[in-house]
């Protein structure tokens, strides 16, 4: 009887601790990712998703983000189709994720002017994971923080084959811009 009471108490403590941990998390479900793979004098190859999810733990700097590949919109419908069917194989690999840690993250140091942080983590695209290190600019926003930045990725690093026929129309390095307004 006594033991079960202690167990119950411990359980209660865990719940409270978890709830407190939860309060430290900043989230977004409408993060923005744009990528550019255009070559000069060829048709623009670019897409945007406005439904990227992300979670930042303010106490530890742990960060996780998830983008659904079908959520990327192109201006040209055929390009979107090729992107999904031939390159990203989004039926097989419906999402891209980015999980890791923002180094030396300290929420008390965040001000309204953007400050650079190093984000180290694993980037998974097309079912393939690669460790990456990118610079992220973080500034204070009402009720949370704003995290923006740019990085580059090579399609071949993620086993994405680009047929030689269109090779020169698509940049070797794909430029990815992201913008997350993370709030409580």
């Amino acid at each position: 009887m006594k033991k079960s009471f202690i167990n119950f108490f411990a359980f209660l403590l865990i719940i409270i601790a978890n709830n407190e941990g939860f309060a430290q998390k900043l989230i977004t479900k409408t993060g923005n990712i744009k990528f550019q793979a255009s070559m000069p004098s060829y048709e623009e190859v670019a897409a945007e998703s406005k439904s990227v999810s992300a979670v930042l733990d303010q106490t530890t700097g742990d960060f996780a983000s998830l983008a659904l590949i079908k959520g990327f919109r192109f201006k040209v419908a055929l390009m979107e189709e090729h992107f999904n069917e031939n390159y990203m194989e989004s039926e097989k690999f419906p999402k891209a994720t980015f999980k890791g840690k923002i180094e030396d993250f300290d929420s008390s140091k965040i001000t309204s002017s953007p400050k650079n942080f190093t984000f180290k983590g694993d980037l998974t695209i097309h079912g393939k994971t690669k460790p990456v290190s990118v610079i992220v600019k973080i500034s204070k926003a009402p009720n949370g923080v704003n995290a923006i930045g740019t990085f580059e990725a090579k399609p071949e690093d993620f086993d994405i084959e680009i047929p030689s026929l269109v090779r020169k129309k698509i940049a070797d390095k794909i430029k990815i811009n992201y913008s997350f307004l993370l709030v409580k």
């Binding site: 989230i27 439904s51 999810s53 979670v55 998830l66 590949i69 419906p94 999402k95």
Partner: peptide
């Protein structure tokens, strides 16, 4: 339907 978001356990 664009898929399932594991982070928030939601369908988008």
């Amino acid at each position: 339907c664009i898929g399932y978001d594991e982070l928030f356990m939601e369908v988008k």
